[in-house]
Simulated scan of single mutants.
Amino acid sequence: MARRRSRNDANIWPGFVDGLSTLLLVVMFVLSIFVVAQFYLGEELASKDSELARLTARINSLAEQLGLAESERDALLSQVLSLEDTIDAKEAELAAAIVALGTAESAVAASAEELEAEKALSDEQKSEIATLNAQLAALRRQLASLQEALEAAEAKDEAQQAQIENLSQRLNAALAQKVQELAEVRSRFFEALRNALGDRDDIRVVGDRFVFESDILFGSCSATISDAGQNELEKLARVLLDIRGQIPTEINWVLRVDGHADQEPLGPACQARFRDNLQLSSERSMSVVRYLAGAGVPERRLVAAAFGDDQPLVSGFDAASLAQNRRIEFKLTER
């Protein structure tokens, strides 16, 4: 029995060794496969890491480029907006041009219609046009004739204007001569009047006027000529009547009588008769004119004027100054 068990045991062992060898080979094969796979996996991982680093650098570069691209995008966007505005403006111009073209086409169509209408004119209308053209030609001839007449009239007017200027020069010369003659007559009148009145301090020549102080002719606050004043005015009237024959008849002369008052306001008693100094000076000049007319001087040769206290000869309110400013002035002049 022991032998049989030993033989069986010996028969089992080789099979066990074979199985174990086979298992070991399988394990060795698996380990080899694992090592090889690990090697290739390591190589692959290293390659992936390198690729990852490269991709990371690429991503960073792309990020920088993207930042620049955004600036460029904004600039391009502005250009696009500007181009859109330009396109809108061009479209508006194009629309306006289309409208203008339509208007022009309408005008051309209208002109074409008018042309067709003209071509379709009847013989009667053509005759009327010919008549109108003839009338127009006649009107043009009349216009030319009127133009000639106008030019002739202008030439005549220039000749008349030259004559007028010549007559004006002659008239001015004649007037200057008459003024000179009147000045000479005035000088003789003043000389004769001075001789007739004698040398008096209260009667004097101022410029082209003979000046009488009012106290010679009137009392205080009175427009009635005194007896002494009447004597002096008689002398003046005689001189004027004697001298008037020496004045050329062409000169329309007058003796202007100007009344002046002093600057003193009228007192209560005087205000009962005269409103103010202007009325007093006016009444006095009128009294002188009426007296000279009664003495034989033609009324048409006498003119009365009044200036109140507006034109004093001297300044001051003393008695002598006031007496000089109260005056009657006589001026031989033209009307």
Score class of each variant (00 low, 15 high):
200 R>T: 04
303 V>I: 14
40 Y>T: 10
78 S>V: 14
154 E>L: 07
148 E>W: 02
66 L>F: 06
102 G>Q: 15
46 A>N: 13
26 V>H: 07
173 A>I: 04
281 S>Y: 00
138 A>P: 00
48 K>Y: 06
164 I>M: 07
285 S>I: 05
24 L>R: 07
93 E>T: 08
196 A>W: 03
308 G>F: 02
266 L>R: 03
204 R>N: 09
224 T>L: 04
140 R>E: 14
256 R>P: 01
54 R>Q: 04
275 R>D: 04
231 N>Q: 09
196 A>P: 01
189 F>I: 02
191 E>G: 02
257 V>F: 03
275 R>P: 00
87 I>S: 09
21 S>F: 02
259 G>Y: 10
123 D>S: 14
258 D>W: 14
294 G>M: 08
74 D>P: 01
73 R>G: 08
106 S>D: 07
183 A>N: 12
303 V>R: 15
16 F>H: 11
21 S>P: 00
263 Q>K: 14
28 M>Q: 11
255 L>G: 00
198 G>H: 12
283 E>H: 03
277 N>F: 01
106 S>W: 06
314 V>H: 05
133 N>Q: 15
158 E>P: 02
128 E>I: 10
116 E>F: 00
202 D>E: 13
320 A>R: 04
48 K>N: 04
327 R>F: 03
205 V>P: 00
163 Q>G: 02
123 D>Y: 08
